[in-house]
């Protein structure tokens, strides 16, 4: 059975690209969220094996969403998606419980490596 993934990013462009990378590699994207609040809600419903989470989003940001998701499921596996220069935010996300991170611009190989590490 393939692993299920929830993709969270406020840009459709990014969501589409990540979903495509993951689907092509055989993962099953079961949901897409465009806000942190939505991600938390969908996580509750879908219980995916993995969440990819953008750091900067309106309303509930990625880091707060990680905190909420970890509250729901302490074993949740969240992969942060960040841009260069956001080291402090990434560290904060790790402290909040994120399991790994990838840096934009995305290279499919690096995204898949990180996903495997997290699901490992």
């Amino acid at each position: 059975m393939s692993h299920t993934v929830l993709v969270c990013d406020d840009a459709i462009f990014m969501r589409t690209m990540i979903s495509d990378i993951l689907s092509e590699a055989g993962y099953e994207v079961v949901g897409e969220a465009e806000t942190g609040a939505q991600a938390v809600e969908l996580y509750r419903q879908l219980k995916p094996d993995l969440v990819t989470m953008d750091i900067v989003m309106p309303d509930v940001g990625g880091i707060d969403a990680v905190r909420e998701i970890v509250k729901i499921d302490p074993d949740a596996r969240v992969l942060m998606c960040s841009a260069m220069g956001q080291q402090a935010l990434v560290v904060e996300a790790i402290q909040a419980g994120a399991k790994d991170f990838v840096v934009k611009p995305f290279q499919p190989s690096r995204v898949l490596e990180a996903v495997q590490r997290v699901l490992g």
């Binding site: 406020d10 840009a11 990014m14 900067v56 309106p58 841009a83 934009k104 611009p105």
Partner: peptide, 18 residues
């Protein structure tokens, strides 16, 4: 705040597009 987020999103997308 809103402008920052919008520009940030554009940056990420553009970098990915090359």
């Amino acid at each position: 705040q809103g402008i920052f987020r919008a520009v940030h999103t554009i940056k990420g997308m553009a970098a990915t597009m090359g």
